[in-house]
Structures are given as structure tokens and as C-alpha cells.
Design a protein around this nucleic acid. Structure first.
Lengths: 189, 189
DNA sequence: ATCGCTTTTTGCCATTTGGCAAATGATTTC
DNA sequence: GAAATCATTTGCCAAATGGCAAAAAGCGAT
């Protein structure tokens, strides 16, 4: 929970009372390896913040292949859809790659925080926009790079992930086959 | 201007008075082919909505290659940075591929609309989120596709663009060389 | 219609990547 | 610690893509 508060405070100021409200609404939960956080087709009932661990976001393309769209690591908000009040049914799966620890809020509690703390909305918007821009920039770069560049960029941007994430997922994220990734790794050494 | 109002109304309701306010603040401008709308390093002073034409968003990677990140076509908001009030200096270029028509608002006027129309903020947020999600989904798919799939997807998603945009830009957007794209087109025929 | 300029296609060959199956290595379970 | 299971690497060859330069096609101005 402290991690979440600390994170939030980077984006805006909150007084003690406000922090206490947030603390009182959040619940810490654990997720073990390979457990789902979201499943495609099942409505999402909570807002979460990942304090520990790595979550993988993936979907199936029209050829039935499983594609890893991105990884979520420590200190990331996991928000559903466009607005809090809209019921959201994702088309992707989020599943824990490592054991995870999250702070979660029900939609109802989140709405209460929104209605009580002036500026909460703008803090959250800043975070969302930041994440979106990061994701777009990363995915865009990939498209224009060859396999080796993609891999080198990956280990540079996610140095803590390389050793925690199966290579097959990394290969899928990078848009290359696992055997290509393996060969690339050999050359890089 | 009508196009803009019409577009906005898809995301929320506005009464006549509110619509009039928006109309009074917006200015229509033209951009001719190859003119910049934004330049990397120059601060952005306005919020724009593209009513006609196509704009290309590109940047230079660390090898000095020009990379087309995406195309903006009719009926898209062009927003800077995270928040209205923050001065924003982009690191990408936006330039008109065809002659364009836009509705633009100064930051000051936009702020006035924000402060006057309750719900404006949430309308804009919905639009931003929608665009972000579209962009991420598109870029993600590209990564996992080969050249032919990328091209076929492109003409399916942007049927109106294929004949208005130089192939070199499309190739760059798709992350393949122009000669490969040309060969792919030959095979597809 | 012609000239000059830009865009697109093509040829040639080197390099990269994919696909598949087998081999090796690592980890878990009993 | 042996067996079973899962993850990663490798070999082989086919297919896709890149790089470069020349040819062809398209387009606008005269």
C-alpha cells in the first residue's frame, strides 16, 4: 500500500486525510504465478495497482496465435476501459508471470475517492496518459527494428524482466519466433 | 466546424448554448500539403481537430531514419501532451500529406470551454482514450505480422488512405522497406 | 508532346527470419 | 536422485526481407 501512495504522490499532492481515505479503501491481494487477473469476456470489477511482480497482457489473433501485447511490472496502475462507471469486458487476458502483489479498489470505492478528493481525477489522467504514451512509443519502435535491435532495446528498457519472463513470451512480445530470439541471444553474447 | 460538433456529440450531450460557445471559440484553418502542423522542439500552442485531409506523424530514430509513427485522418482530435495547461514541446513532426482543414482552439479558449461546460473534460477524455487504444492495438498487431499481412490490414483499416499517401510513408509506417512493399503489392494483385 | 522531376517497380544477391524436429538443459514431482 | 515435464538451443532448409542501383511509370510545367 505504501508503494501505491508513494507512486500517486509523484503525480500530485494529497493531504494526510486524503491519503487515509485511499488507504482505507484499498485492499492488498496476492496473485500466484499463472493466475489470471483479467480474462477476456469476463467483466472487470476492480481497479488495481501492481506493487510487486510481473503481469503479462496477451490476446489471440485471427490465426489463433497467442500474442503478448505487453508486460506490466511493478508500480503500474491497471485500469479498465474508458471510464470507471462503464462496465468493461476486456478482450485480452492478464495473467501473472511471477507471484504478484496488488492493491485493488472496487469500482464503488474508487468512485467515492473520485467524488471526495478534488484533483484525484487529474492525477489518474496524468498516469493513464503517461502509460499510454510509453506503450505507443515502445510498440512503434519495435515495428521499425530488426530482431537484434528489438531484443537489445528490450533488455535495456526492462532490465529486470529478462530473467523473470520466459523467453517464449519475450519473443512473442517482440514479434519474432522463439528460435530466432535464441539465435539472436547467441550472437549478442 | 459542423463536423467537429457532430463528432463531439457522439461522446456526450451538449445543449445549444454550449455548442454555441464551442463554435465561438474555434477557428478554421487550412494547411497545405507538406506544411507542418507541429515541429519537434517547437512548443504547441493550440488544440486542433482535423476535419479534412491526412496528417503524418513521424520522428527520427537513433540511426537518423525517418519513421512514420502513424497517420491522422479526418475526424481526429490532435492534442498535445498530458494536460492543457502544461507547455508541450513535441519530439515528433506532424505534417500535412494532403491539403488539410482543421478547427483549432487556443489553449486559453480551450481552458474556458473546460471551465464552462461541465462534462467537457470527460468527453475529451473518452476521445483521448479511444484514440490511444486504437493506436496501441494497431501498432501491436503490426509487430506480430509479416509484410503482406501488414499491408492487407492497412488497406482494410485505412481504405481511403492508400491512394492518397505516398508508398514510402506507408512502408515506413508498416516497418518494411519500400521495395519490399512494392513486391508485396505485386503479389497481392 | 516533351522535358525534368518524383514516385514506384524491378533485378540481383546477401542477410535475416521462419518452420519444424531433435537435442540439450533446467525444473518439478514423487 | 530418477522420471517426467517444461524451457531453451540448435541444425537444416525454405521463405521473406533488405540494400543498392537501374529501369519504368507517373506527373506537372512549358
Amino acid at each position: 500500500m505504501d508503494k501505491f501512495i508513494e507512486y500517486i504522490l509523484q503525480f500530485g499532492n494529497l493531504n494526510k486525510q486524503q491519503i487515509d481515505l485511499i488507504r482505507s479503501k484499498g485492499t492488498e491481494i496476492d496473485l500466484s504465478r499463472d493466475e489470471y487477473y483479467w480474462e477476456a469476456g469476463k467483466t472487470v470489477k476492480q481497479i488495481g495497482f501492481l506493487t510487486d511482480g510481473v503481469i503479462r497482457v496477451y490476446y489471440y489473433n485471427n490465426k489463433g496465435e497467442e500474442i503478448t501485447r505487453y508486460f506490466i511490472d511493478e508500480n503500474h496502475l491497471i485500469l479498465s476501459g474508458n471510464t470507471i462507471d462503464e462496465v468493461y469486458t476486456p478482450s485480452e487476458y492478464l495473467s501473472a508471470i511471477t507471484d504478484c502483489n496488488l492493491v485493488v479498489f472496487t469500482r464503488k470505492d474508487w468512485r467515492e475517492i473520485l467524488d471526495t478528493i478534488i484533483g484525484w481525477d487529474s492525477i489518474v489522467q496524468k498516469i493513464i496518459t503517461k502509460h499510454h504514451n510509453e506503450k505507443i512509443a515502445r510498440r512503434s519502435e519495435l515495428v521499425s527494428q530488426d530482431g537484434a535491435e528489438r531484443y537489445l532495446d528490450f533488455i535495456q528498457k526492462f532490465p529486470t524482466l529478462v530473467n523473470r519472463v520466459p523467453l517464449s513470451y519475450i519473443a512473442s512480445y517482440l514479434g519474432i519466433t522463439q528460435s530466432s530470439l535464441s539465435r539472436i541471444r547467441k550472437n549478442v553474447r
